[in-house]
């Protein structure tokens, strides 16, 4: 093999190995990219994870949106977790207060995390929460019960094609997970 060929072999090998390493990194880069894209395009039904501020806007009395509340508890979580009301009629722009009721049926201190999701996904960006228990983790002592508050308003810009918004919470048991914050009991 000539010296020239050996050199071009080496360059090509380095380039190809670097591409492979780069694609390994790209796989991980897809994780933040996914969140950014879902956020920017308003897809996937993810609601914002921090409180939005309520600017008093004109309440669109002519339009009524049905808001439905769903709750699910993962099978390893010995809690009940239910919305105060299952469905309500709201006008866009109206500030609404409701709550979910959680009770710990076990004899142990448990920490939960409720994860919200809005359906249809395109409506998520118009569902604004000024206060939500889901912004924090939920901790309950043995056999304790709590009302978990939720205050929200529907953006009047909500597309006309959407007349029903479903807000679903799934409650996960994160007591033994690494990411439990110090929650005030």
């Amino acid at each position: 093999m000539t010296e020239l060929k050996r050199k071009s072999n080496k360059q090509l090998i380095i380039l190809l190995f670097a591409s492979a390493v780069g694609m390994f990194g790209f796989g991980f880069a897809l994780v933040p990219l996914y969140d950014v894209l879902c956020d920017a395009l308003g897809i996937n039904g993810k609601t914002q994870s921090t409180a939005s501020t309520y600017q008093p806007v004109t309440i669109d009395k002519n339009r009524t949106i049905t808001v439905e509340f769903l709750s699910q508890v993962q099978s390893d979580m010995p809690w009940t977790f239910t919305p105060q009301v299952n469905t309500m009629q709201v006008h866009p722009g109206e500030l609404i207060r409701t709550h979910f009721v959680a009770s710990n049926l076990s004899a142990n201190y448990l920490v939960g995390q409720a994860i919200p999701s809005v359906s249809p996904g395109q409506g998520a960006a118009y569902f604004n929460k000024t206060e939500c228990f889901c912004f924090n983790q939920q901790a309950l002592k043995a056999n304790a019960q709590a009302d978990l508050p939720l205050i929200f308003f529907v953006d009047p810009e909500l597309p006309d094609s959407i007349s029903t918004l479903t807000l679903s919470y799934t409650l996960f048991n994160i007591t033994d997970k690494g990411y439990v914050e110090n929650v005030a009991e």
Binding site: A20, G22, M23, F24, G25, F26, G27, F28
Partner: peptide
Amino acid sequence: AVMPVLAG
């Protein structure tokens, strides 16, 4: 291009 993504 894609085997590294599988590894990831």
